[in-house]
């Protein structure tokens, strides 16, 4: 059989398309390594309570941020546009917008710490095209820096601005490297991981431990007897924009 040039090109294109389709079928049928998310009473759901009164007593404090960033090799990039941050201070009025009024004595400028909300129904997880970000059964929203393709769809989806993208190589901006935690490369998204590596060792998150006023409490929201549930039962608390339906796991005591 003699192949014309055109037939050869056609065959080659067909073969490439078939190979691609085969890969897709295989991938769809392949084993799913991601654990299914189900809610149940026996499940933990890690959460955090931040007491703003205590927090504000410590003026100018950013020890939680420094502890976290040192633990997790978060770079200190001077260019604001390329900043990477896991937990940091923001103005109250920017965290809880449309609340302050000229008639109340709430200070719009008082800083308060913000971090990933580890939502029950996270928009970032819903949109990620590779499941590089996913939710664990204990509520921690995780990131796989090796699977992330850097499309930044999760950043567009997160209503809290909790995610950072590595616009450049972060390593030259690390003062000291913690050998117990991976560093990242340019081109991937990252965020707070609720110190899952410390939780696995039975430790509290680094920020909670670093707070000089014990303004942060961490625990299992599904356990009625936990300290954090007892605080929430006693005191009035708010979440950031609960009306968006994401179900944040960070509560602020006002």
């Amino acid at each position: 059989m003699k192949l014309s040039r055109k037939d050869f090109l056609r065959l080659a294109a067909g073969a490439v398309a078939l190979a691609g389709a085969g890969g897709l079928v295989h991938a769809v049928n392949g084993p799913d390594a991601t654990p299914r998310l189900r809610s149940g009473q026996d499940r933990k759901r890690w959460g955090m309570v931040i007491d703003l009164q205590k927090c504000h007593e410590e003026k100018g404090c950013d020890r939680c941020a420094r502890a976290c960033h040192a633990t997790h090799n978060v770079p200190g990039i001077p260019d604001k546009a390329h900043e990477v941050k896991w937990i940091w201070n923001e103005r109250s009025a920017d965290v809880f917008p449309f609340q302050p009024s000229e008639y109340t004595n709430q200070s719009a400028d008082a800083p308060l710490p913000v971090l990933c909300n580890h939502c029950t129904d996270p928009a970032c997880v819903r949109v990620c095209p590779t499941r590089a970000t996913w939710k664990r059964q204990d509520g921690v929203v995780m990131m796989d820096y090796h699977r992330c393709i850097g499309c930044r769809y999760c950043m567009a989806a997160c209503p809290y601005g909790s995610r950072s993208f590595n616009y450049e190589d972060p390593r030259p901006h690390l003062e000291r490297i913690n050998p117990d935690f991976p560093t990242r490369t340019a081109g991937v998204v990252e965020k707070c991981n609720f110190c899952e590596e410390r939780l696995a060792r039975g430790q509290l998150p680094a920020c909670v431990e670093a707070c000089p006023r014990q303004a942060m409490a961490f625990g299992d929201l599904n356990d009625e007897q936990s300290a954090i549930r007892r605080i929430l039962a006693r005191r009035f608390s708010v979440q950031r924009q609960p009306e968006l339906g994401c179900g944040p796991s960070i509560f602020y005591l006002v």
Binding site: G20, G23, L24, A27, V28, R126, V127, C128, P129, T130, R131, A132, R147, C148, I149, G150, C151, R152, Y153, F165, N166, T185, A186, G187, V188, V189
Partner: peptide, 23 residues
């Protein structure tokens, strides 16, 4: 060209995710 890790573009096929509109 918008992807931070273009070398991993095939992850979209390798881990097809129907709950993502990008899929």
């Amino acid at each position: 060209v918008d992807m931070g890790q273009p070398g991993r573009v095939l992850n979209v096929l390798l881990y097809p995710t129907p709950h993502s509109l990008m899929f």
